[in-house]
């Protein structure tokens, strides 16, 4: 290894985050859907596009579904691109929900893409992507 290569290797090591992110976003979604195709639409992921504090960011997922026995959402999963882990949460629901809407508060380590995926009882998967800008990240203490 010449000097230039050694320096390049060093630089790469230095910019590595303390925790290497686990896997890629598309891969995490594929694992959850079991490789089934996903389509954009029917799902709405509501979150502020500019987040001034990543420690507790309100988020709401709504799926356009009549929530009847014949036609309903069975699960919703939330994924992120750049936190240490790709998973955020998974929710199981059914016709007894009456309305396919779930809210929670999440942590965001940095500016990144979020994806909500809904699974319908007919086996189809629907997604919505949102890009958010985070000005103050989660997980830093005073």
């Amino acid at each position: 290894m010449n000097r230039r290569q050694a320096l390049a290797t060093l630089a790469v090591v230095m910019v590595r985050p303390a925790f290497a992110a686990e896997g890629d976003l598309a891969g995490a979604i594929r694992t959850w859907t079991g490789g089934a195709a996903t389509k954009e639409g029917r799902v709405k992921l509501d979150i502020a596009e500019l987040v001034d504090n990543g420690n507790a960011v309100p988020i709401t997922v709504t799926v356009d579904s009549p929530m009847t026995a014949a036609n309903h959402v069975t699960a919703i999963a939330l994924f992120n691109e750049k936190n240490p882990q790709r998973d955020i949460a998974r929710f199981q629901l059914g016709p007894r929900a009456g309305k396919a809407q779930v809210s929670t508060r999440i942590r965001l380590a940095t500016t990144q893409r979020l994806v909500a995926v809904a699974k319908m009882n007919d086996g189809s998967f629907w997604t919505h992507n949102v890009d958010v800008i985070v000005t103050l990240a989660a997980c830093i203490e005073d």
């Binding site: 998973d87 955020i88 949460a89 999440i106």
Partner: peptide
């Protein structure tokens, strides 16, 4: 629900 570290 299943919750992960990204939940506040």
């Amino acid at each position: 629900a299943e919750l992960y570290a990204a939940i506040a």
